[in-house]
């Protein structure tokens, strides 16, 4: 196998210059995104470099408690980010989405490492943490679309929902269409990806693995596993997020309380 070529600091600096294209676009079209681009780029560099260095001792220590703690922090940040990206939210959404993501991502991550890849112990950080991160990143998008689309329908489609309630619908009968639409929207990117993957697009993870020296046929197997795990996590996460969102917007007497939207 060929030697892995190590990327030096100048390589990273050179890559960072690519972000100038975004800055130029923002400047030319007066998008006003220069600051956001700059901060985003700096954050990405720091966070990823830190991740690289933090993971070295974590991988070496192999402490289940440390893995658990890192996992919880990752889920917390993902939940906050999912809500921040949604146009609408409700009080207590962060806690709800934390639990949602925790359940959706940790069950699939466990299934992935323990059953599919067969790692022993299943929480071995070298496998568990990257997998969890990959799943969280995707589930986060799904959950954002789930909350956003559900709350939009409850808010803008209020009269339709009350029209059903007025004829005897339960809270679920009156708003299940909002959940269905949100889940459909949220699953679309993953489903679209599955149709073009390998022909048009080579996923980021597989690219990284191949560049990092893994034989392509092994990278492909990992990618297949990841892809289905992403699909499952997005489905479970979005359905749960949308159902919880709808339930929170109704009181115990089947009344839609749009004033709870913030």
């Amino acid at each position: 196998m060929d030697e892995i070529i190590h990327v030096g600091p100048w390589g990273i600096a050179g890559a960072a210059s690519l972000i100038l294209a975004n800055a130029a676009a923002s400047f030319w079209l007066r998008l006003g995104l220069e600051k956001k681009i700059l901060i985003g780029a700096i954050r990405a560099v720091i966070q990823l470099l830190l991740l690289g260095y933090v993971l070295v001792p974590v991988f070496r220590l192999k402490s289940p408690w440390l893995v658990g703690a890192i996992g919880v922090v990752m889920v917390l940040v993902a939940a906050r980010e999912a809500i921040r990206r949604s146009e609408r939210a409700y009080k207590g959404a962060w806690g709800d989405m934390f639990v949602t993501l925790l359940i959706a991502a940790s069950i699939t991550s466990w299934f992935g490492t323990a059953v599919l890849v067969g790692v022993d112990p299943w929480w071995t950080p070298r496998y568990f943490i990257p997998l969890l991160g990959m799943l969280l990143g995707n589930a986060l998008n799904g959950i954002t679309i789930g909350i956003d689309s559900t709350l939009r329908e409850l808010d803008e489609g209020r009269s339709r929902i009350e029209g059903r309630l007025a004829l005897g619908a339960t809270w679920w009968e009156a708003s299940r269409h909002a959940v269905a639409e949100a889940v459909r929207l949220a699953m679309m990117p993953t489903l679209n990806m599955m149709t073009v993957v390998g022909i048009v697009s080579i996923p980021g993870m597989m690219t990284g693995q191949i560049l990092g020296g893994t034989p392509p046929e092994i990278a492909a197997r990992y990618q297949i596993i990841i892809l289905f795990m992403i699909a499952a996590t997005v489905a479970v996460g979005t359905v749960t997020a949308s159902v919880i969102t709808v339930r929170r917007l109704f009181d115990d007497e089947h009344r839609l309380r749009v004033e709870r939207i913030i």
């Binding site: 309630l165 007025a166 004829l167 005897g168 619908a169 339960t170 009968e173 007497e253 089947h254």
Partner: peptide
């Protein structure tokens, strides 16, 4: 009565 039943 039950809320949905009431509204019916």
């Amino acid at each position: 009565v039950g809320i949905p039943q009431w509204r019916r």
